[in-house]
Computed example of a mutant assay.
Amino acid sequence: MSIGDPTLISPAARDALQTWLDGLGALEGAASNTLTAYRGDVSEFLAFMSLHFGGPQGLGALSRITTADMRAWMASARASGTGARSLARKLSAVKKFYGWLAKREGFEPTAVLSTRAPKFQKKLPRPLDKDAARAMIDTVELQSLKDWVAARDVAVVTLLYGCGLRISEALGLMGNDAPLPATLRITGKGGKERVVPVLPAARQAVDRYLQLCPHPQERDQPLFRGVRGGALHARMIQGVVADARRQLGLPASATPHAMRHSFATHLLEAGGDLRAIQELLGHASLSTTQAYTAVDTAHLMDVYTRAHPKA
């Protein structure tokens, strides 16, 4: 048997996992991608423990997992090629599940919750500079022979850079959101709402797409359409940006999400307030937003040197 064998997980453990995931989706508004990742990570852990103990384990056995058992799981994951960052993510999912399960079943989850994640070097966001961001939008327009598709792709990427939207948020806009107003109310991760200003360039890009799009715009249908009229998938925009990136000679880090990073960084460079940028990005924690300040330390130090009265 291998860890991928679903029969390794006992019915009780499988039901508990599903109940936890259902709660995350219904009560906390967790995104479907997040739930899929949690399911995979926790299922792998439960399957390993079944192999480790010699057979599928009920909830009683799971409540007795020790620190040594946790170390065995982590060692096995590393031996199979799981990197430190990925293992830290898996451990985080397992801890969240066990915290919930311990409350429901009334056991002490210290052995699991006290397990330390492996150390890894956190990668800072790698935004594009202003010229590269503009060039990216211009080059995206050249990737399709169909004018309406080119206009669509430009509109999406302009929303990422001009409004700091996640790609899922841009593609989640509906027909009744058009024409775009001066501000948009966006529902982001965890159901968190925020209001973002829409630059004239972004409104114009969307208007041009709507003028050229051959598919009728319906209020209850996605704003951005695929070639056949269905909802536009993120992988299509990712592919278009990858093609433009290669033409411009930009690094692999120049992704759709990098346009959102660029939005934040360029606001900081222009003197934007970190707390205000946190609200625009929809970050739950200021510490997440603070990561953007590290990408252009030289610029910030230059501003400090020129502006500080003691400099």
Rank of each mutant, 00 (worst) to 15 (best):
G60W: 10
G60T: 14
A61Y: 03
L62N: 03
L62C: 02
L62D: 02
S63K: 11
S63A: 15
R64G: 15
R64V: 13
I65C: 03
I65T: 15
I65F: 00
I65Q: 11
T66K: 12
T66C: 06
T67F: 08
A68T: 12
D69R: 10
D69G: 09
D69Y: 05
M70E: 10
M70N: 09
R71V: 01
W73T: 09
W73Q: 09
W73R: 10
M74A: 11
M74C: 09
M74W: 03
S76H: 14
A77W: 03
A77Y: 01
A77I: 07
A77Q: 15
A79H: 11
S80T: 07
S80Y: 00
G81F: 01
T82A: 13
T82V: 15
G83Q: 07
R85W: 01
S86I: 04
L87T: 08
L87K: 08
L87A: 05
A88L: 04
R89T: 07
R89D: 03
K90A: 14
K90R: 15
S92E: 02
V94S: 01
V94R: 05
V94Q: 01
V94K: 07
K95P: 02
K96N: 09
Y98T: 06
Y98M: 14
L101H: 04
A102Q: 08
A102C: 06
A102N: 01
K103E: 15
K103P: 00
R104A: 14
E105H: 02
G106V: 12
F107D: 03
E108G: 01
E108H: 08
T110K: 14
T110A: 14
L113D: 08
L113H: 10
S114V: 05
S114L: 08
S114T: 07
R116G: 13
R116C: 01
R116Q: 13
A117V: 01
P118Y: 04
K119V: 13
K119N: 13
F120G: 14
F120R: 13
Q121K: 15
Q121D: 11
K122W: 08
K122T: 11
K123N: 05
L124I: 02
L124G: 01
L124A: 02
L124D: 06
P125F: 08
R126F: 00
R126L: 12
P127D: 11
P127V: 11
P127M: 12
L128V: 06
L128F: 06
L128D: 04
K130G: 13
K130Y: 07
K130S: 14
